[in-house]
């Protein structure tokens, strides 16, 4: 018998802390597979955020640093400036990157830091139990917007990819999702491109991955994926916003 599929060597044996139906697991696996396929696992240094993926330092089978909330791009900058020959990436959620860490992500992009950022956007704070994020949609109920987010009170959700695409130092910016196999394949391609951007020495690269949070959205896993299609994708359109190969 031949092996047609196996656990990626880019992952350790650790069991993730992700909830049933959460798509973090798929995204983590894609990053691990890409690192193996590019042959960079032994040269990779990842930076874990604060949030649901805080423990990803136990999941990736490469050197890892855990960063303070939102500061992963600054920590990654420190690593990359010391070790420019290594492959440095951050794995961050939307509370981490789009709220407390906006300064760090904007300036990592602005400096054109040669790092790769995987930005997992599930429109909510997961680890702390479902609070409103800057990415929470209008009308979306969370524990800190119990009647639903309103524009008058909290503004409209922030579109990080579109914002970062305006910055010169950002050389690859794409938004993908992982709701079905075809989109998972596209997501993997984008993640690979984001690492290649770094390997080519082009500058900063980010892939925003729309992700489901059944637990805090209060939906079954399949309903959550449908909610993502019906609500998140219309507001956060999928696509490539910046690509150094097409400039």
């Amino acid at each position: 018998m031949s092996i047609v599929y196996k656990r990626s060597e880019g992952l350790t044996d650790a069991i993730t802390n992700y909830c049933p139906g959460c798509t973090h697991g798929i995204i983590t696996k894609l990053v691990a597979e890409v690192m193996v396929e590019l042959g960079i696992l032994g040269d990779a240094i990842g930076v874990a955020p604060v949030g649901c993926s805080v423990m990803c330092y136990n999941f990736f089978n490469c050197d890892m640093q855990q960063a303070a909330h939102g500061r992963a791009p600054a920590v990654a900058t420190g690593i990359k400036r010391v070790q420019p020959d290594k492959v440095v990436f951050t794995y961050q959620g939307d509370g981490d990157l789009a709220s407390i860490g906006t300064n760090e992500i904007v300036h990592a992009a602005h400096r054109g830091e040669k790092i790769t950022t995987i930005f997992v956007n599930n429109a909510i704070y997961g680890m702390t139990g479902g609070q409103m994020a800057p990415t929470t949609l209008i009308g979306q109920k969370t524990t800190t917007s119990p009647l639903g987010r309103t524009e008058e009170h909290s503004g409209k959700p922030i579109r990080i990819s579109e914002m970062l695409a305006t910055i010169d130092g950002a050389k690859y910016v794409a938004r993908v999702t992982v709701d079905k196999p075809a989109n998972i394949a596209k997501a993997k391609k984008a993640i690979k491109k984001a690492f290649q951007t770094q390997l080519e020495g082009k500058g900063f690269a980010i892939v925003e991955v729309l992700s489901a949070c059944p637990t805090n959205w209060g939906l079954a896993p399949n309903e959550a994926l449908q909610w993502l299609r019906d609500n998140m994708i219309p507001y956060y359109p999928l696509g490539t916003f910046k690509d150094w190969e097409e400039e």
Binding site: I45, V47, Q65, A67, A68, R71, A74, V75, A76, T77, G78, I79, K80, R81, V82, Q83, N103, E104, V106, H107, H110
Partner: peptide, 26 residues
């Protein structure tokens, strides 16, 4: 060596964290 002016004192100390974790004098 490398000198880098950070966007804030917060970013600067976190860059120090990343560099120190890389094993150099920072």
């Amino acid at each position: 060596g490398v000198f880098l002016q950070a966007e804030s004192e917060i970013a600067a100390i976190n860059m120090v964290y990343g560099a120190a974790g890389s094993g150099v004098r920072v």
